[in-house]
């Protein structure tokens, strides 16, 4: 129920920002369609901690600036590789372990890897990721494990709380 209310208020904010017209008819349509979406999500039974990871709180917003800095740096290095006449690439595939304990955390880690150019996640299985790296530098950046640590830290406290409440789905390590 709490999650349904949170989802409804988020949808309402998105509607208000996208619409820009605030007369009675359109606001009614907006409320109806938000309620419709919430009802659909409820009916499908996907209103859980995966669809709406409230247990993470606001901490992802602290992670975003660091992620953006990484994206900028790796963009510059990949751009330099593309523009250099000799095309100095050393493609390789690495199997690395993801130390996150929830599936949400592992998805966040895998998506962060894919979002930074130079590394891309091929597969996620049993807490291990297959990652294709473009150059030696991008592989070393991945192996330093800083991103892994930061994402694991991100979910740490929320995961403990969910674990105590017995809500954590097993992801098979």
């Amino acid at each position: 129920m709490k999650r349904a209310l949170i989802l409804f208020s988020h949808l309402a904010v998105v509607w208000l920002l996208l619409s820009g017209h605030y007369d009675a008819t359109l606001l009614t349509y907006g409320a109806l369609s938000c309620a419709g979406v919430v009802a659909l999500v409820w009916h499908l039974g996907i209103l859980d901690m995966e669809a709406l990871p409230t247990h993470l709180g606001l901490r992802p917003f602290l992670y975003l600036p660091w992620l953006f800095k990484e994206i900028v740096l790796s963009n510059l290095s990949v751009a330099r590789v593309i523009l250099s006449p000799s095309l100095p690439i050393e493609p390789r595939i690495l199997r690395v372990s993801a130390s996150q304990r929830t599936q949400v955390g592992q998805v966040m880690y895998a998506n962060s890897i894919t979002l930074t150019p130079g590394t891309i996640t091929l597969d996620v299985r049993d807490g291990q990721l297959l990652v294709h790296a473009l150059t030696k530098d991008s592989a070393e950046g991945l192996l330093s494990g800083e991103m892994d640590r930061r994402v694991a830290h991100l979910e740490a406290r929320g995961a403990q709380r969910e674990e105590r409440a017995g809500l954590l789905g097993g992801h098979g390590a």
């Binding site: 900028v72 963009n75 990949v78 751009a79 593309i82 690439i89 891309i120």
Partner: peptide
């Protein structure tokens, strides 16, 4: 544009996907 050039210069599919992500992010 650099990403587009990379799409043409890179030798195989996996390396081309890195060039494509360049245009989608920064």
């Amino acid at each position: 544009l650099i990403g587009g050039i990379g799409m043409l210069r890179m030798p195989d599919f996996y390396t081309r996907s890195h060039a494509a992500s360049l245009t989608d992010t920064l």
